[in-house]
């Protein structure tokens, strides 16, 4: 058999596309007593090599996929950085090529940001940490989202993502719960408040994400998510508004 024909035969066999005759031919080449041991061994090695080539190509694809996933996860964790950095950075970049007043304004922003840290941000962070230690809030929220869901909303069972996320939250794995909620939110189509259940489910997912963010002490993320829940004007509006007020101004 010509080398290319053998490659085609093995490829069809390994990919499951071989016809019954081709399968028989492969089995014969592997175990026919009329063939010499060397021929059979050579065919077996050829087949193993071809399988290794397939694995090596797939391994390249897998590695690239995992590298992309790693980049995504790192970018996501970078999103948690305070937005003040991104606000100052373009100014500084512009200052490096612009006139003197731009440098001054960049410096002013930087000084203001440094002062804002202890004066504005630090009290908010400590208030958020105090909220995050309130275990009643979390058990109430996760209970509400699962067990009492149908009575509260008068609708079907909560979504799988909510069940899984609340279970993770109850076990204290807020990071994983948040990843699950992000995934579920990304998978949701665009909804409006006319969409009823989908709208309310989106609000649940955002509210749970806000609770995860508080527990992970992510000030900016929690404030952004709570604001979003308040804007949605749904079932969690009052709780979200209260939490937001407590973070910003204390009780």
């Amino acid at each position: 058999m010509k080398a290319l024909d053998q490659t085609i035969l093995i490829d069809r066999y390994l990919s499951g596309e071989a016809s019954p005759e081709e399968k028989l031919q492969v089995e014969r080449l592997l175990s026919d007593p009329e063939l010499s041991l060397d021929d059979k061994e050579a065919f077996r090695q050829d087949m193993e090599l071809q399988e290794d080539i397939i694995i090596a190509i797939q391994e390249r694809g897998l590695r690239k996929m995992l590298q992309r996933e790693e980049e995504r996860l790192r970018a996501e964790s970078n999103d948690d950085q305070p937005p003040i950095r991104t606000a100052v950075r373009p100014k500084v970049a512009a200052a490096s090529r612009g006139p003197l007043w731009l440098i001054r304004s960049a410096a002013t922003i930087a000084i203001a940001a440094c002062m804002a840290g202890p004066i504005v941000i630090a009290p908010q962070v400590s208030r958020m940490i105090a909220i995050s230690n309130n275990s009643e809030l979390y058990s109430a929220a996760t209970f509400e989202m699962t067990d009492a869901y149908s009575q509260l909303k008068g609708c079907d069972e909560p979504s799988d993502a909510i069940i899984a996320a609340t279970a993770l939250m109850q076990s204290g794995d807020y990071k994983q719960a948040d990843a699950l909620l992000v995934d579920a939110l990304n998978g949701m189509p665009e909804v409006t408040n006319a969409d009823g259940q989908a709208w309310s489910e989106k609000e649940d997912l955002l509210y749970l994400r806000a609770l995860c963010a508080i527990k992970q002490h992510k000030l900016y993320r929690s404030r952004r998510l709570l604001n979003e829940v308040v804007r949605m004007d749904g079932l969690h509006r009052d709780q979200a508004a209260e939490l937001l007020h407590t973070i910003k101004h204390g009780r």
Binding site: A3, L4, T7, I8, D11, D46, L49, Q50, I53
Partner: peptide
């Protein structure tokens, strides 16, 4: 072309 590529890779490895 896929078969040719596979054959070429095998040749190089051998």
């Amino acid at each position: 072309q896929k078969y040719k590529c596979m054959e070429k890779l095998k040749r190089i490895i051998y």
